[in-house]
């Protein structure tokens, strides 16, 4: 399959900040690429370059067969964008917003009007269709913005954190919408902080950090890359976290992750259920009371943590120091 999105060596600096430091991407037609990365990694900047909003300092990008730098306006007629922050006119109603977008995609007014109604219904906004967007809740605005990205049903779509701010029901509904679009042949580049979302929607995942793609592959490939199961325990007494980590160290196959406020410790292990039994005996021997213990397969969260040395969500601390993580990630990036 021909790639619908290609980026080669994208570089963008803002003053001293190197937001993009040589990003390479390839998204085959009809597939979904999930772009993961900690805050400030360069996800939004990548999306802005690919959607013609930002000119890179170096590099090349082709979207739907059209060179982004040479023919930006042609690219614009082939893409739909929903940026990280909803771009709707607060003083226009939902219907007027979508109709305007349709008309600016050069649709006939009548078609734009019909399409606006269809999308409003589709995104559960029919009841609010004739209210100014100013009166919308955050999630409603977000949905209106997503609808705007679908007005012409473009072959290539870019969604920057599309489900941030959506309640679980609307998030699930959006996932269904995205799956339907992809079934119909849409190519999608999606950034997200919800690793579950990437796991479910993305065929391929690219992990970005410090403006570089540091790992790439399917969710399963990435999980396999960072190794086997994890033992997860919740210590009853916060003061014993240190002792518990010590107790786990002989079994650990990597750095433990500690969440202080939930008293949760996670360590990569190998050996399955046998190790679990050993760990329980060890903790018991040291009189460390535990509230919960389990063995689980690695999740994308683990991938994220081990690759970037940061947590995907706030409030998680990792025992790894960032430099060690970076050393490792560089090699992972090359292998991928």
């Amino acid at each position: 399959m021909a790639p619908a999105i290609t980026a080669e060596g994208l570089v963008k600096t803002f003053g001293d900040v190197r937001a993009l430091d040589g990003v390479d991407l390839e998204v085959p037609e009809g597939t979904v690429l999930g772009l993961l990365g900690p805050n400030g990694a360069g996800k939004t900047t990548t999306v802005r370059v690919l959607t013609t909003l930002l000119r890179p300092d170096a590099g090349r990008a082709v979207v739907a067969g059209v060179d982004v730098l040479k023919e930006p306006n042609k690219v614009r007629s082939l893409i739909g964008l929903s940026g990280q922050y909803a771009a709707v006119d607060e003083y226009l109603t939902g219907r007027e917003n979508l109709q305007m977008v349709g008309e600016l995609y050069q649709m006939r007014s009548r078609d734009a009007k019909a399409r606006a109604l269809e999308l409003l219904e589709w995104f559960n906004l029919s009841e609010a269709a004739d209210r100014p967007a100013k009166t919308y809740s955050g999630g409603m605005r977000r949905r209106l913005d997503l609808a705007a990205a679908l007005v012409v049903r473009p072959p290539v779509m870019f969604l920057d954190e599309p489900t941030t701010g959506l309640d679980p029901r609307n998030r699930m509904a959006l996932w269904e919408v995205i799956e339907t679009l992809v079934e119909q042949g849409t190519t999608l580049l999606l950034t997200t902080q919800y690793l579950e979302e990437a796991d479910r929607l993305a065929h391929d995942i690219a992990v970005v950090d410090h403006g570089r793609v540091i790992a790439r592959g399917s969710a399963d490939e990435l999980k396999a890359q960072i190794g086997g199961e994890r033992v997860e325990i919740v210590v009853h007494d916060r003061d014993l976290i240190g002792t518990a980590v010590e107790a786990l160290t002989p079994y650990a196959k990597g750095e433990p992750t500690i969440e202080k406020h939930t008293r949760r410790i996670t360590v990569p292990v190998s050996g399955g259920a046998r190790v679990l039994a050993d760990v329980i005996r060890e903790l018991d021997g040291r009189d460390i009371l535990i509230d919960d213990i389990g063995l689980r397969r690695p999740t994308l969260d683990d991938v994220f943590l081990s690759l970037t040395g940061h947590a995907a969500e706030q409030g998680t601390e990792t025992a790894e120091d960032a430099e060690a993580a970076e050393d490792r990630t560089v090699t992972t990036g090359k292998d991928a």
Partner: peptide, 26 residues
């Protein structure tokens, strides 16, 4: 936003307008 209505999405091709006429209309 349900998958049943999702199928109703039609193909809407952007129109091809160029030059002054497009500028005036936009």
């Amino acid at each position: 936003m349900t998958s049943t209505t999702a199928g109703a999405i039609g193909t809407v091709a952007p129109g091809q307008r160029t030059g002054l006429l497009q500028a005036a209309r936009d």
